[in-house]
Amino acid sequence: MSTDGQAVVAAVRRVADRIESERDHLTDLDSAIGDADHGGNMARGWARAVEAVEDLDDPDPATVVKTAGKTLMSEVGGASGPLYGGSLVFASTELDEGITPESAIAFAETYLEKVTDRGDATVGDQTMVDALVPAVHTFKKSIETDELPPLEALAKAVDAAQRGVEFTVPIRASKGRASYLGWRSVGHQDPGATSTLFIMEALLAVAQESLDGDDFESVDATSPTIPDEEATGE
């Protein structure tokens, strides 16, 4: 297996582990404003994605990403399948020539474009877009304008996603199932933005390890917490 392909399989495994460990957390977030299935659906989908990518014979990075996306598409129900999985499938073609800073930016931008098109959401709708937009923009700017090394750019992108997740708490949902709650969605952290952050944190962790050869422990400490129910006035 190519080194890059192997690294991407490791990344899928890492994401799956992280989502599994946050399963109840995501379910709790979703039960406040949705139908309490986000943790279970995502954990099941990523676990199957690991099985699927481990079955591949010497795959390139794009094939690993595409396979993971296809699996999520068929295993994660509802709107999350197309949003998380479908977007990966489409973005995977950006990695056809391998993973470079440029192709990683193109990948991130295509992924974001697919999510926003599909969900018809913009920043401020209390969705995963609130984490993705600042993350993708920060990643691109850090590499293209600030000329930071990719790893640092990814770390900054994760920070930006973290702030995006926090931003979903005080705003009102206007897309997704939480929008049915109207003003009652205010005060709740969006589960989709949160799982998006977890995915990015796992990617950063695995990138740190493969590029530095060191364990990167500090990311988990940044996990956002569930907002206090009392404070929301419900």
Binding site: G77, G78, A79, G81, L83, G86, V89, F90, R118, G119
Partner: peptide, 14 residues
């Protein structure tokens, strides 16, 4: 419905 529309759209694009 959001789920139906998104899953159909994804399939159609593919």
């Amino acid at each position: 419905y959001e789920g139906d529309v998104m899953n159909f759209e994804t399939a159609i694009e593919l």
